[in-house]
Simulated assay, not measured.
Amino acid sequence: MKTLFKTLVAGICLVIFLGCAKNEEPEKIYRIAGKMNIDNRNRTYLLNLPPDYYNNESTVPLVIALHGTGGSAAQFERDYRFTDQTNRTGFAVVYPEGVRSDGVLKLRTWNAGTCCHYAYEQNVDDVKYVRTLIDHLISTYKINTKKIYVTGMSNGGMMAYRLAAELSDKIAAVAPVSATMVLPGAIQPSRPVPILHIHSVKDTIVPYAGGVGLGGYTFAPVDSVLRVWAAKNACAASPQVIVDDQHYKLTEWKDCSNAATIRCYLTRDGGHSWPGGKKSNPRGDEPSSAINASELICNFFQGNSLP
């Protein structure tokens, strides 16, 4: 009887021990809602790690995805199905959020140079925020420091151009969508930066040909912006038209320094929207069905890295 009792006690202790050991195993967290304080402002972001993040020791590439005016981390992820694409291609993705305005709508914006609204008017240092965020993610997660990229929609795409100009030592390539560059002076990137630009010829919010858009801002023509970058990247003088059909026009600047190619997709359909995504609001433009921006962007990023 004593032997049986001792056996039962030993079994119970073993179960308790194993249960405690199991509970002590770190939980594998793939989605992190984070925040940090930059210049006395609370800044927020959403980070998603790829499905195989914990299965190997290698570092992963990172995409920084910037929403447009009035958008958010959740809105970008939902409407553009971007996490679905980064999970398939093995990228980590972080969705930072712009500061909220003090108006009734509390719209989030980025200070991309001379646009847009509250962030620009208050001279918010969004470059500092993104730089600090990159450093934090590198020190906390297995991020490949040579494979950090930026994409953005509208005002977020404008911010992507600013980051390409001012953080080219950290960012391997950028992919602005429905945007243009709004920096007031000459750009001085420290290295050539590969660029994938996506736009619709029907965009009236940020017109591809330039001019006055939404909010009364005057925007530079995208062609002139890409010519500036082609010169900085020491590309061949004349771009090549790769595709020009009823769906879209693909133009490419080749033979660039350090293979920093520039590509531009100009769709015939759509408007101020994310091609292949969903409408962000009922009154918004229909997205182009000619291309899938999220897929093109991830494929483009996979071919580029810092030296």
Score class of each variant (00 low, 15 high):
Ile205Cys: 10
Phe76Ala: 11
Gly103Arg: 01
Arg131Gly: 04
Asp255Asn: 14
Gly68Ile: 05
Leu46Lys: 12
Gly11Asn: 02
Ser288Trp: 10
Ser305Ile: 12
Leu133Val: 11
Ala230Leu: 11
Ile12Cys: 08
Ser168Thr: 15
Asn87Gln: 15
Thr69Glu: 04
Ser200Val: 07
Asn87Tyr: 09
Gly270Ser: 08
Ser289Trp: 04
Trp229Gln: 14
Pro176Arg: 06
Leu266Ile: 08
Gly213Lys: 00
Thr7Ser: 11
Pro184Leu: 14
Glu252Thr: 04
Tyr30Trp: 09
Gly98Asn: 09
Ile12Lys: 03
Leu47Pro: 00
Leu66Tyr: 04
Val130Ala: 09
Ala186Cys: 04
Lys147Met: 11
Tyr248His: 06
Met158Glu: 10
Tyr45Gly: 06
Asn23Met: 15
Asp169Cys: 13
Gly271Thr: 08
Val222Asp: 03
Asp269Val: 10
Gly152Lys: 07
Leu226Val: 00
Gly68Gln: 04
Ser178Lys: 08
Asp244Phe: 08
Ser289Asn: 11
Gly277His: 01
Leu66Asp: 14
Pro275Ser: 07
Asp223Phe: 03
Val93Ile: 11
Pro221Tyr: 06
Ser58Ile: 14
Glu166Trp: 11
Ala10Arg: 07
Asn292Met: 13
Asp203Ser: 07
Asn56His: 13
Met36Val: 04
Ile291Met: 00
Pro282Glu: 10
Gly271Asn: 08
Tyr30Lys: 14
His199Glu: 02
Phe301Arg: 03
Leu14Asp: 00
Leu296Asp: 13
Asn55Arg: 13
Phe301Leu: 00
Leu137Tyr: 03
Tyr265Ala: 13
Pro51Thr: 01
Lys202Trp: 03
Tyr45Val: 12
